[in-house]
Each structure stands twice: as structure tokens, then as C-alpha cells.
Design a protein around this nucleic acid. Sequence first.
RNA 1: GGUGAUGUAGCUCAGAUGGUUAGAGCGGCGGACUCAUAACCCGCAGGUCGGUGGUUCAAUUCCACCCAUCACCA
Length: 668
Amino acid sequence: MLEEPRKILVTSALPYASGSLHMGHLVEYLQTDIWVRFQKLRGHLCTYVCASDAHGTPIMLKALELGISPEELTSEISAEFVRDFAAFGVDFDNYHTTHSPENEALTVEIFEALRKRGDIYTRTIEQAFDEREGMFLPDRYVRGTCPYCKTEDQYGDACENCHKTYTPTDLIDPISVVSGTTPVKRKSEHYFFKLSEYGDRLRAWMQEATLDKNVVAKLEEWFEAGLQDWDISREAPYFGFRIPGTEDKYFYVWLDAPVGYPASFMHLCERRDDLDFDEYWRPGHDTEVYHFIGKDIMYFHTLFWPAVLAGSGFRTPTSVFAHGFLTVNGKKMSKSRGTFIKARTYLDNLNPSYLRYYYAAKLGPTIEDIDLNLDDFTARVNSDLVGKLVNIASRCAGFIGKRFDGKLAEALPEPALFAEIAEASETIAEHFERREYSKAMRIIMSLADTANRYIDDKKPWVMIKNEDQLDEVQAVCTQGLNMFRSLMIYLAPVIPAVAEDARAFLNEDSWSWPCAAIPLLGVTINKFTPLLTRVEAKQVENMIEQSKESLAEHETAPEDDYISIDDFAKVDLRVARIDKAEAVEGADKLLALTLNLGDSTRQVFAGIKGAYQSETLVGRHVIVVANLAPRKMRFGVSEGMVLAAGPGGKDIFLLAPDDGAEPGMRVK
RNA sequence: GGUGAUGUAGCUCAGAUGGUUAGAGCGGCGGACUCAUAACCCGCAGGUCGGUGGUUCAAUUCCACCCAUCACCA
């Protein structure tokens, strides 16, 4: 290799820790992993870090719903991610979380640096507010009727029917997705980052980062429209990092999420002597930093992120590589069609090497979507990987093993033919470097065809019957196995597990890229065992069936009119005595109740102020849901729910037990 | 709705800065072989290059509009 070893840091977008990985996620992680493995095989110091994106409203609400802390939720999901990534051979040097001390320290450092240079200011804005939950609502958490075309049940930011954009408060009959109540408008002070002043620096960065032309086109479009300042704060309750100097304001998840890249790297530096944080993240060093992302988050990675870095004393990324989306059988992934396939469901049915190869065979450097066509997948994998590539080894290995005690010939009979494969090395490497994986795969498979044609032409199975030609059989098979070996080295970044087995079969300790040009001669190799079996149509069918089933559990349950006795038993209803009832300052519907449950007391907020005077409630018995997950509200934590009937307002009627019931009694 | 991208054989994709018969792999059909995980090898068939119009001696390749799909709209 002529190149000097490079120092490269690579990231993939941080998966949001609120759901499972699916086939779409894997496009990115496999694309990145292939590139990283390629760089390592070429002898470069390439480091791959990632982390779980752990903050934000969706995670906070999901944790509430499950009755666990956001920390518990995200660490459970991260553990799943780690397991799935490992199974697919995605080999991170470090996998961390954004809910980490490193991330908080860096986020605060960045914020303070930006504030110091005057890039942060505050402004009061008006937002939808859910009074029952005591929280501001992100646009996606308000639904209602589109003010333009009157389509019902639309998100708070845009109409799916007429595609007009608006704010949640424009909606007709807006409803909070969280509580089902009508949100009100409320003002609060937010922190803004002056992105508008970074236009020139971003344009300059865009030039030097050698982005894909489609990415540049998109950026030009955004520059054209004008850069707007960016709201980087959110009000409590929020799961994230508190903004220094405030009581109830947090950094917006999208501020600290990309900081997860350097933070994860920093976490790795603690245990790696050969990596220095500043060398990769401060300006003026000869290192490279690349972010692999999906095209949907380009705005964050090509505008916000470089601007934030540039303004706070960090280096900007060398480049950002955006890829397209995944469709399955030509359409968006669909739960009802069974094409919303989770990583785990795939792993339960199919070998990860298949998918790694198939994606590689289709991936290029552009933001075009790629299609996972399952029939094509089966045909392609069977034909290319099993029928062509592995077949070369399979048809040569038998002769070498049985007739020559596993010993390869001392010389290649056709050095020129081998050279053809060796000479493709740099072209293939260039394709890998430029993320033109599909082109690399095309060349490799065409060379595999050449190898198969060679064996077919020499017909070792005919020569083997003639004692005089035994040496030639050994030579031909040695030639075939060497061609196989070189191609396998080229494919090692794509199908590392198969390459590993092939290397063991050839009885070698390690491979690097240049090994592909040096033939393996005169040595004894191991017994051949099938390196890869064919994809069975049945496996694919099962995977789809199982993807449908997981939907059924999920979506038919709420439509079912009946619950089982076990479901009912999950609700722990108790008799409670109201010890104290007082109005909540700032809330016109809520009363704060202190309830006595016999062996404990707890605080519950109830929306009954319109119907009851607090003093008439003290001493009354009510029914309370005792095992409801506590909810953090603006005014405090509510630890249960008091049962009442009626539409609301002044028509609210508390349920009460007959005389004799004691606090703490279970309702059955 | 605005903006950007994509639309080439049954399938997945190349390609042409406008110019003789538009390519590959897979699938299909026919043949050969039997070393190999029914793999491999040889051959054949298959496309008015999304639609309509325009520029040109000549367009699938340039332009306009339309249709379909995808994304973004901070």
C-alpha cells in the first residue's frame, strides 16, 4: 500500500432508544461498518463510535407509560441494540449513551462557549401546553383538524392530506395526544442559537467537505431559503440535561444528540492509549472525522452540527455521508404486509451475512433509496455468494483434501490469471473508499465468474482419472483456491464472518488487503466445510409471517372489546380517605389530594376543582387506582388516580364506598 | 403546496457530456457437463430507455409540461 496510515474517526447516527432496530436502521450501520472494516483492513487507524440517543419527550413519555424511569428504559433498549448490532457484525470500537457524564460535560462546554461569543439569546415563544399533564407539547403530540383542508386527525405541524404546514395552535379542535385534553397556548422563554450568522462559514465548510452532489443541492436550497435561528431549549418536564443557571429548562435533544459522537469517543479515549481526544476534535490536526447519516437528518448534520462545532472551538467534520431510505418489495415498510422487519426477527430466521452482502450489492454513495426485494434477495445471495463465490472453493477443496492431503501446489499454473484478480485490487479499493459498494461487488462477482470458467475449462474431474495429470489437478485447484482467497479478502469488510471461516479453512492467521495479491502456495490447508448455505424461500416466508404476528399482538389488542379477568386484576383499586385537599396554584381545574391508604399516604392531583370545594372533601372515602405509574406534572408528582364519573367541569361525581370500608381495602 | 431526487428488459441495476444493432447479473427457454451446497459452462429470447410536446440532420440522452414513487420544508 502506498498510502500513509490515516487516522479516521467514523460515526453512525445514534439510534433513538425507544424502539427496536429494524431493516431500515441496518442500511446505515452496515454501510458504515463495511467502510470501517475496509479502512482497518487497509492498515489505517480507523475508529468507529456510536451511542444510544437517550433524551427527549418520546422517551420520557414512553417510560411514564411503562412505569419505569427513562434511564431504565433506555438502558434496556440499549442492551437490545448492542445485542442486535453484535449479531449483525457491526463492530463498534465504542458504544455509549447520550445520557452520560461525558456528554453532559461537552454539551455544557459547547453551550457556554457559544454563549460567551454571543451566539445564544433568549426569546419568549408561545406553545401548546397540556394542562392535565403539566407539560408543553411538541408539534407531533398535538392532533386535530387541518385548518386548510379540514382533514381530521392531523399532526400539529403539517397536514398529510394537503401538505400545508402550520403550528399546533392553528388546528381546529386540537387534542393533546398525551392526555386527550384540549391544549392551551402558553408562553415561555426559550434559548436560541444564532444559526443565521453562520451562513458564510457553512458555505465554506460545504466546499471543503466534498459532499455528495445531492447533499450540496439540498444545502443550496436551504441557504437560498435563509438560515433561521435554532431553538435549543425545552421546558420541564423533559428528559435531558438541565441548562446551567436555569431551574426548569433543558437542552433540546437535538443539541446533545450529535455531541454523543465526541462524547462516545471521549469515553473510549479513557481506555485507549493510542487515541487522543483533542487530536480528533480540536482544529489543526491531521485526522479525519466522518458521519454516516440518513438523508432525513441532513439539516442537523450539515447545518446545525458544523455551526455549533465551529462556534465552540471544535473541529468540523471532514465530511457527512448521507444515504437513502429502505423500501421492502418496492414499498415503504408496512406492518400489515409483514415488511416492517425487525433486526431480531431477521436474525431468528436468516444469516446476517446474506443481508450484509445484499445491501453492499445495492449501496452507492448517493441519497437514493434502496429496495430490499425479498425474491431478488434470495436469488442474488444464492447465485452470487453460494453459487459463484463459495462454489469456487467447494469444487477445488475436494481434490486438494482427498488426493493431496490438503497440500497446495508450489506454484500457480496461470500467474497471469491470478494477476488479473490482484490487479483489480486498487479499483475495488477505490470503490470501497468512495462507498460505491455495488460497483465493487459487481467487479468481484465478475472475477468469480472468471474463476469458475477457468475451472470449467481445465476440467480437473477429467484429469484426475489420469495418473500422469495429477500434478496438474493440484495446480489447477491451487489456482482456483487462490482466486477464491483473493476475492474473499476483498469481501472481508462485507461478510467478515464468512471471510473468517474461509481464512481458517486456508489455515492462515490473519489477512490484510495486500495479502490478496500474494498467492498462498505449498502449504497445507484444512478440511473444507460449507461456508454458507443457501437461503430457503421458507425462511423468508417465516420472517414475514413473524413480522405480521408481532403486529397482531400490538394492534388488535386495543380493538378488542373485552379484557380478561387477569387484565382487570392488574388494576389495584383501593379505598382511600382524603386527609387533605387543597387548590393548586396556577391550575384552575386541579386539586391536590393527600390520600390515606391505611399503611401509606400519597399525593394525587385530581381534576375535580370545578365540582368540589376542598374543605367538603376532607374525611371522605374515595376509590383510587393505587398501582398507576407515578406521573411527573408541573406541580409535582401524582401517585395515583381518583375515580370519578361524568364529562368534567362541574359535572364530576366521585365514587365512594358504602359505610364500613376502611382505607387500604382492595376493591375486587 | 414549494423544493430536491428517482422512473432503462419479468426482477435488481449499469450506461450514453445527442449519432451505427441500449448493456450486466438474476429469472425464462435450449444445450453441455457431472468436480461442486441442482452449483458451474455454452447459447437464445426479451426493452418504442415513465408519458406528451419542443429544440436538432439526429434524443432514451438537452428543454418544457404532465404522471408515478421517495425525501425535506428548519
